[in-house]
Design a protein around this nucleic acid. Sequence first.
DNA 1: ACATTAATTATGT
DNA 2: ACATAATTAATGT
Length: 240
Amino acid sequence: MRNAKRARPHFRLDESLLTGLPPFSKLDSRQIREILDQASARRYDEGSAVFEEGRSAERFFMLLDGYIRVVRISPSGEQVIVMHIPGGQLFGIAKALGHTTYPATAVTAAESLALSWPTRLWDTFVAQYEGFSTETYKTVGTRLGEMNNRIMEMATQQVEQRIANAILRLVNQTGRKVEGGIEIDFPITRQDLSEMTGSTLHTVSRTLSGWEKHGLISSGRKRITVCDPHRLVLLSGATG
DNA sequence: ACATTAATTATGT
DNA sequence: ACATAATTAATGT
């Protein structure tokens, strides 16, 4: 039966969701409780936007499970994939960068689960939760370093090496062991790889086919597993 | 050393 | 059956 409208049922989020995650690892269970009671949880289908570039940063997020694809669109309409964020990390933390709007769009690369809080809570989180700010600045620093490396790659390396580096990054961050190698844990297309490397899906397809022929990787539709990481590193590294 | 264009085939609902 | 992904060859800068 269709019942009367009622307020969103208040699910008590389990404390184990946050305990152990770096930004919260130093907190006692009372503090975790506090934080969880102010959070809202939401599930996202694959490919749905969590927030969009330019929009006011109303909330910040903790990705509990799944993967976030950070995306920007050029004025001419081409998409660029800035990076991927795995579960267990904060994202949409515009406030940490001194922004009031989101600097990029966040799309789920797989079905995902995220907590979020109103951005007005950011300062109190920083002020009263030990380790929160230092840990978040660590992740900001890590991401900055990655983007830094990407800039170098873009400027100096050829497409094949950039693709190799992109895949290695994904494998390091999201790789899960399967028989015969390490698989990228979420669906990824040649188009995606091209948007990460400033290339085209055709070039990506050709290079991947070549690698597959030589046993470096194996791939199906939207799936890539690295069989020989070592040789891939050789390809990606100093001029071959 | 790569993009573009185009045609063809494979794969998932 | 249909849409989306991937491959492959030919041609262009």
